[in-house]
Write a protein that binds this DNA or RNA. Sequence first.
DNA 1: TTGCCTATATGACGATCATCATATTATATG
DNA 2: CATATAATATGATGATCGTCATATAGGCAA
Lengths: 197, 197
Amino acid sequence: MSEATTPKERTRARILDEAAKAMREKGADGIGVAALMKRAGLTHGGFYAHFENRDDLVAHAVDRMFQDSDFLLKRHLAENAAAKGLSELIDYYLSDETRKRTDGGCPLPSLGGEASRMPAAARQRFSEGIQAFRAALAASLTAFGSPDPESLAASVLAEMVGAMTLARTLDEDAARVALRASREQLKRRIGLPALSN
Amino acid sequence: MSEATTPKERTRARILDEAAKAMREKGADGIGVAALMKRAGLTHGGFYAHFENRDDLVAHAVDRMFQDSDFLLKRHLAENAAAKGLSELIDYYLSDETRKRTDGGCPLPSLGGEASRMPAAARQRFSEGIQAFRAALAASLTAFGSPDPESLAASVLAEMVGAMTLARTLDEDAARVALRASREQLKRRIGLPALSN
DNA sequence: TTGCCTATATGACGATCATCATATTATATG
DNA sequence: CATATAATATGATGATCGTCATATAGGCAA
């Protein structure tokens, strides 16, 4: 009943892991089947024993990315009082570390723009991931006592995603300025103390 | 001295026009040289009489996109009092019409995420385009009398880009809710009257 | 018309890609 | 050890792509 992971399942998980990393780094089309399998320590032929086709891989890889993202999200929001959780999440999501580490965490800054052009299944995962992120923020803002938390949550999420997207295309100095501005403004408008660096 | 446009220059402009539209719609890699030339009413061979290579095309196409974007930006911000201009810009940028028309206007929602993975020249155009957009917003916010207009401008730009990025991957109903939320929140935090639909 | 230069078209090359048929190796069972 | 089955590797196919060499057509000067 519990998940006895067969060798094949472990291989599949490894492929998805590498796909999720590579696609965040180089775009959804940035890595081919052969290169991906090589990164997973395999050759290209076995791919179709694990996935129907490339579109199927992309959809599951997006799933994998949002699992990473959810983990980080809950780690900040659920394990803390609302104010501390929100503040920590903003500082982490918009940190210079996150800007540089493009192969992990939330897929929205790197792949959000392409999501609408992805195969339907992958796009659907993005849609669900966005809604879940938004709902988690809304719950935290409700606990914090914000007025109109639903609207604010959508707005906060948009700024977080947009700020990291822009920061990743700016040069280092401009990026740091932009990230700091969004951290400041986000905390100010949520009503959090502005203790960040 | 003034620009006497030769036939060749007009052809080049047509190619860039089609490239700018197609790339916003389908991603920077979404259209090949042959398909692009066909859209411009030509065949693939003549391409290299106009551009060094495909990377060169991409860089100039990004330029073309920001020219469109600048046009719309200035149309709202420069021709109006600061409050009206900002309000109109927000309503237009985050309209349902903009969400659906993916082949025109600002390239940041559709291509911002890929910008950091583009050839250096194209990425540089993005960087400059972002800074110009931010500066225009800052000038307008200064005229409006906002405290800390530089920081606010960066934050507003991030939310605008992020909100449209997310809206384009959500389904229609969720997209409209998200766009309305960002329009509301943006006007509220800038201090604009909330007259929008 | 004749010849010249510019602008575009034809066609081909090598590389890369997703996909699949088939062979080979590893694992588990008797 | 022998045998069956699962898991991965090899190799090939057809499609698409950027790039370029070369051919053709169009406008202009004589």
